[in-house]
Simulated assay, not measured.
Amino acid sequence: MQSIKGKKALVTGGSRGLGKAIALALANEGVDVAITGRNKNTLEETVNEIEKLGVKATYSVFNVADKGEVKKEIETLINSFGAFDILINNAGIAAFGSFIEMDEDEWEEIVKTNLFGPYYVSKAVLPSMVDLGSGDIINVSSTAGLKGNAVTSAYSASKAGLIGMSESLMFELRKKNIRVSTLTPSTIASEMSKDVLKITDGDPDKVLQPEDFAELIVDMLKLNKRALLASASLWSTNP
């Protein structure tokens, strides 16, 4: 396996939960990390934790669903922090309710954040990866994108769309030595999943933890550059 020490990574939604676990796992491998989010205070706190691991860290406050903000802030990050070797499209939101009753604006916001967000961020980061002649993009989808369920229409639609976009991008970019992978985890214990666990009577201590998923991402990035794990599902053993 190759070392990823000294590389630069961008983790969207990196200030808490799954994104924070990913950022810290990368930092433990010697990766300089930039994180994004919408809360300046939590971003600053996480950057302080990352820096204690002996790597460089920074943050940017923006909404991934806002095309203008994404383009401006990613350009600023690249100019100040350097071109990114790794992009983890992790930022996402969820809300659950019946198709008929869910507010149309809420349905649209979920799709814009979970599908258009990774599109906007990838589009902003990719030119510099192409210039470098290498890179890794990991898109965090969900098992809900593999199979729809009652009350998950918006979330499942957004994550299914991300799977399709990500797979197409994988075929397009591997010829440029850029690896694109799609991960579809089952429920991970986090602030975002608490409603799902209530609905399913799930035990937060028995489902996947953010650190489990972060370990998988690190291992994928360490694969020899000739190897590409295009997609993978990670499930709780006995939730």
Rank of each mutant, 00 (worst) to 15 (best):
Ala57Phe: 11
Asp85Cys: 10
Lys222Asp: 01
Ser141Tyr: 05
Ser98Tyr: 06
Val64Asp: 03
Val207Glu: 03
Ala189Pro: 07
Tyr155Trp: 12
Val218Ala: 03
Ile178Met: 03
Ala124Glu: 05
Leu229Tyr: 01
Asn149Tyr: 13
Met220Arg: 05
Lys112Asn: 10
Lys112Arg: 14
Ser233Ala: 12
Ala124His: 04
Ala150Gln: 13
Ser15Lys: 04
Gly19Ser: 04
Val11His: 01
Ser122Thr: 14
Ala150Cys: 04
Asp32Asn: 14
Phe96Leu: 10
Glu45Arg: 12
Ala150Trp: 13
Leu77Asp: 05
Asp105His: 03
Asp85Lys: 11
Lys52Trp: 08
Arg38Pro: 01
Lys225Gly: 08
Ala65Asn: 10
Asn28Ile: 09
Ala154Glu: 06
Pro118Trp: 09
Gly30Asp: 06
Ile163Val: 08
Asp195Gly: 11
Asp103Val: 04
Ser15Trp: 02
Tyr59His: 13
Ala144Asp: 09
Glu215Leu: 15
Ile138Val: 12
Ser186Met: 04
Gly135Asn: 07
Ser158Met: 06
Ala23Tyr: 01
Leu26His: 01
Met192Phe: 07
Val196Asn: 15
Val125Ser: 03
Ile137Cys: 02
Asn48Tyr: 08
Phe96Arg: 05
Val207Ile: 15
Glu108Asn: 12
Asn41Ser: 15
Glu211Arg: 15
Ser186Phe: 05
Met102Gly: 07
Ser156Gln: 09
Asn238Leu: 14
